[in-house]
Nucleic acid binder design. Structure first.
Lengths: 205, 205
DNA sequence: TGTACATCAGTGAACGCGCGTTCACTGATGTAC
DNA sequence: TGTACATCAGTGAACGCGCGTTCACTGATGTAC
């Protein structure tokens, strides 16, 4: 049982790293089993085919990302009860986490999948969609809380603003990969944070 | 001569569309030549190997994107001489252009390449890097002009702000692809525009 | 405590298919004299 | 105006290699009686 979990997540680790560097099609089962030190047959014991690998990889990534956001913003809420400050602290924690990764964040499995989606079945594509919709809902909810306490200096669509959190992260990771730099994503998050500080102003009652 | 140019760009058109949907590795020469109605040998008359196709595709994409930005912001400058308003108009034109694409912008070749960069040689990767650095320089220059005339409400790094234009576009396109919606990129650009309106304020002398 | 059987987590050889690439050839157009 | 040769823009058959997948088998561990 312990070995099973171990092998399975070793496969997923290796696959994820390779997919982010070369794409899904170019990630061969041969190289995965070589890295995980199992035989070809061993791979197919854990995943019925390559598409099942893609789905498992995405599911794991989305779960991890959601758990991270949960944790980050729960800590932020502990530090400050005001919804705007909670948001700002959470974003700062996210930026710091990205910056502290020794060789930079390797990129987002969702973006990679989105740019190769014809390779996958409808289920995988929907997983991707639901993940982004989930983040929209999460951040939209937080912005609604903020808007109850603060005024808005310019009218904005809160769904779009919620998407902007994901968009800024995704965009930052693309820049980071293309530029071969390490801190673009955290820098972009910090700029977005400044945006929020300018956008939301104390309500005058 | 005319036929040559025609076949070559037909190949590039088909390759680009396929790369954005499936990635570079999954784009086969077989399907390209079927689409372009030539034989396998005909492909290799135009490109010495598949890497040469990748490079030509990227070069063409970057040139087109630069030409588009040139044109958009030249028109914006015609409409308003003030550097901030020129920026705001240019971004609006960009957002409108993205929105007017009948089936949505298909995505960015640079992002796709960035997420598969181990497939390419150093030259291709550098092309990608230089393109983004070029946009950083372009937009940073525009923001410097703005900062000469306007004050800045919160301190920001102008390089990072320049990158944010590319980042917001890239991020918006990832959202758009993952969500299978059409207007996320233009929406994100409009939000960024609001950011700039809040950030730059008339200087009090 | 011993025996029989089932399940788990693989091994490793074999398969056929599709891929990128090469190459000898071709017919149309362009150029030199 | 006619002839010889060169270049352009391909054709289409052939190549070998690596890919995803299947399958018969195996040895270790778990469960029932």
């Amino acid at each position: 049982m312990d070995q099973k979990v171990d092998t399975r997540s070793r496969i997923l680790d290796i696959a994820e790293a390779s997919v982010l560097e070369k794409g899904f099609e170019a990630t061969s089962i041969e190289e995965i089993v070589a890295g995980a030190e199992i035989s070809r047959g061993g791979f197919f014991y854990h995943f019925k085919d390559k598409n099942a690998l893609a789905r498992a990889m995405l599911e794991r990534y989305i779960d991890a990302e959601n758990a991270l956001y949960d944790e980050l913003f729960a800590r932020a809420r502990e530090l400050n009860d005001d919804p705007l400050h909670c948001m700002l602290i959470g974003l700062k924690l996210l930026a710091e986490m990205l910056e502290d990764m020794p060789s930079g964040h390797p990129g987002c499995v969702i973006a990679s999948t989105a740019y190769q989606d014809r390779l996958f079945d409808e289920g995988v594509r929907d997983l991707n969609r639901q993940a982004i919709l989930g983040w929209r809902k999460r951040f939209r909810g937080m912005f609604e809380e903020i808007a109850e306490v603060y005024g808005v200096k310019e009218p904005v669509n809160l769904d779009a603003l919620g998407d902007m959190v994901s968009g800024v992260v995704e965009g930052g990771l693309v820049l980071q990969r293309a530029l071969r730099e390490h801190n673009n994503a955290s820098e972009q998050i910090m700029l977005f944070r400044t945006y929020l500080k300018l956008l939301f102003v104390p309500k005058q009652t």
